[in-house]
Amino acid sequence: MEAKGSESSGGSENLPFRLVDQQSQTVLLRAEDILGFFVDPDQTPPDLVTFTGVQHLGTGRGKTEEAELQVVDRHGERIGAYYLGRVRAARSRTPDVNDERNPEVPYDFFGFTEEFPEAGRIWKRWAGAGPVESGEWARVPAGWQESWLHVVQTSWFTTGRRATRYRGGGTVELDGSLITGRDAFYCALGEAANGPRGYFGSNLDALFDCLRTARADGTAPFELVWREQAASRAALGADFTGQVLGLLGECGVTVRSD
């Protein structure tokens, strides 16, 4: 169901974040950015989450028990979502979005945060981007890759896809030279199996779910051509690499190094 008052085309490229009352599907606000929601795991969560660059503010609803934070692309299509439950506006007055160019609107999320500090920047990048390109994840700083994987997984399921393989063809090519750690491995594997910004697991259990679901769907087992496997093994460690290879073999995937 589309939120009431949401843009279906155009006009959303600078407003990727919106707060929605799930029960009524009313848009409470649209904003350019959100501060204090995506945090470092070691960071003490702020008391308030602040929406900045608010250019739409609903009237008469400063509190809701069924809130959802949505991320939308420049066409107004939802690409990510977080169920928040209870939220409450913490403003002393209602900003006039006609008079204030970029008002800030604080909200109390009652301690709800996401421990992926770069996710907000990545969502903004995705929301305003043009055509999706291969290898985007490898061109961001290494410290962003955990957040990138989180955004990939969240977007994948928000947009109605499942933990399975969608791309056809019997061969998947994985570039091991780009793999610098486990997050990078899952980013690379998701792209190899399901295309740019594709998901194919974010840990071993999730990888098994993807392999098992594909098998249940009747998808033929694929051959994984793992290029530069020695380089990625050095980055991932022999134990983890062995677990991955064992899981792939258990699920009927033939692995060939190249």
Rank of each mutant, 00 (worst) to 15 (best):
R91F: 12
A90C: 13
N194D: 14
L248C: 14
P46R: 10
D183I: 08
R93Q: 10
D205I: 01
W123F: 14
A129N: 09
A31G: 03
I122L: 14
G201W: 06
A188H: 00
Q23E: 14
A142N: 12
D108R: 15
Q145K: 12
V97M: 08
G246K: 14
E66A: 10
R139D: 13
D21N: 07
A119W: 11
V152W: 00
D40Q: 06
G130C: 01
I34E: 03
C210Q: 07
S202D: 13
T158Q: 00
R61M: 14
A238Y: 09
P46M: 06
L204A: 11
T113M: 00
N98R: 08
R233V: 08
Y82I: 15
E146K: 02
S24D: 08
F51G: 10
T158Y: 00
R121Y: 02
G128Q: 05
F51E: 11
D96F: 07
A184I: 01
E223W: 01
E66T: 10
G218H: 10
Q145W: 05
P196L: 03
Q22Y: 06
Q229S: 13
D205T: 08
A3I: 12
G130W: 06
D42A: 13
V152H: 01
V152Y: 01
R182S: 11
G111W: 15
M1G: 14
G85F: 04
L189E: 07
R78V: 15
G53D: 02
Y199V: 02
W123L: 11
T171E: 07
P16I: 03
H56Y: 13
G135V: 06
L189Q: 05
A184C: 00
D217V: 12
C187I: 04
S92K: 10
R18V: 07
G120V: 09
A67D: 10
L28A: 01
Q145I: 02
Y83H: 15
A231F: 04
F112W: 07
Q229E: 11
E115H: 02
G60A: 08
S6M: 09
E114V: 15
T154P: 00
A90T: 13
R125P: 00
R78M: 14
V253S: 03
G170V: 08
Y107K: 06
G252Y: 10
G130V: 02
V71Q: 04
Q229D: 10
F109E: 01
T254H: 06
R167Y: 02
